[in-house]
């Protein structure tokens, strides 16, 4: 049965060691693609265009042109097929669901066409973000934001997240283990595994009580350490900001990539005038 499968899977996934390793692998993996070598500031500017402009484009030729471009780029960026599948299924499902409900309410299938073009639009935007953010290194990204004027706290938080994630996972695992080593799991599964799910979920929620207290202790030392390591000193000093992000440098490749994009956009918009 479907639910049974699901719970089996859940139980497997509840092997915390598995989850921990998976998360760490995802977070710390560094895959290389064409986009990783580009300057994150250029990528951000590029993304800025493709995240906003498509909203205001209604011409089908242009949208298809944009989509084609994004598809090629996702291939180059080696985006994981899983993410793409999830994206596609989500968009298709939305259209079908809307069509179905529209029919129920006495409408007709004419709803599908506009929704289809909306989906193309959304696909362009989502693919643009997937391409950029799946290959951008979060730390480089945060440094780019820092350079562009975002608060130093954000950039610090990204680096700190990498520092603290393994510790948090380790602590969480220990706390859950403490619950399980002293608790008693329900002997029966209950209807639809309800008892088991209830047992695990309450444990998950309760585990945040110790986690909050332990983290509060930790964050105190952390902020003190930030202070004695001169972080607030640096936040005021523009020169330090430059030193920190000095490694961000645009190369010829960045400008070529921008040029390529501009030319392509020109072609697409021109074609739309003709066709």
């Amino acid at each position: 049965m479907f639910t049974l499968e699901w719970v089996k899977k859940l139980e497997d996934r509840l092997s915390l060691e598995y989850i921990k390793q998976e998360l760490l692998r995802t977070a710390f993996s560094t895959e290389k693609s064409f986009f990783t070598q580009l300057d994150p500031r250029i990528l951000l500017a590029w993304y800025g265009y493709f995240a906003i402009v498509p909203w205001f484009i209604y011409e089908h030729v242009t949208l298809v042109g944009y989509l084609l471009f994004m598809v090629i780029l996702t291939v180059i960026a080696r985006v994981s097929p899983l993410i793409l599948t999830v994206l596609a299924v989500g968009l298709a499902g939305e259209i079908l669901l809307l069509g179905f409900i529209a029919l129920l309410f006495g409408g007709d299938l004419s709803i599908v066409a506009p929704m289809f073009w909306l989906s193309i639009k959304l696909a362009v935007i989502s693919l643009a973000s997937v391409t950029v953010f799946s290959s951008i290194n979060p730390e480089k990204f945060s440094d780019a934001l820092l350079r562009l004027g975002a608060p130093a706290q954000f950039s610090f938080s990204v680096a700190y997240a990498y520092r603290i994630l393994p510790t948090l996972l380790e602590e969480f695992q220990q706390i859950i283990l403490s619950y399980r080593l002293r608790g008693l799991a329900p002997s029966k599964n209950g209807v639809l595994y309800f008892r088991k799910i209830y047992y695990y979920i309450t444990m998950l929620i309760k585990s945040f009580y110790p986690l909050i207290l332990n983290s509060a202790k930790r964050s105190r030392t952390t902020v003190e350490a930030l202070e004695i390591k001169g972080f607030s000193y640096a936040a005021k000093d523009k020169r330090v900001l430059k030193m920190k992000t000095n490694y961000l440098q645009t190369s010829q490749m960045d400008w070529l990539f921008l040029l390529l994009t501009v030319c392509y956009v020109v072609i697409v918009h021109s074609l739309q005038l003709i066709l």
């Binding site: 699901w6 998360l23 706290q153 938080s157 700190y160 948090l168 996972l169 964050s219 902020v223 607030s232």
Partner: peptide, 26 residues
Amino acid sequence: QSQKMMIFILSMSLYGLSNMFTELIP
């Protein structure tokens, strides 16, 4: 200022962690 930073860091790391879990729960 530092107490604000403590609250920020506390909230960020814990909610961040929980968010990783909700992303995983099918």
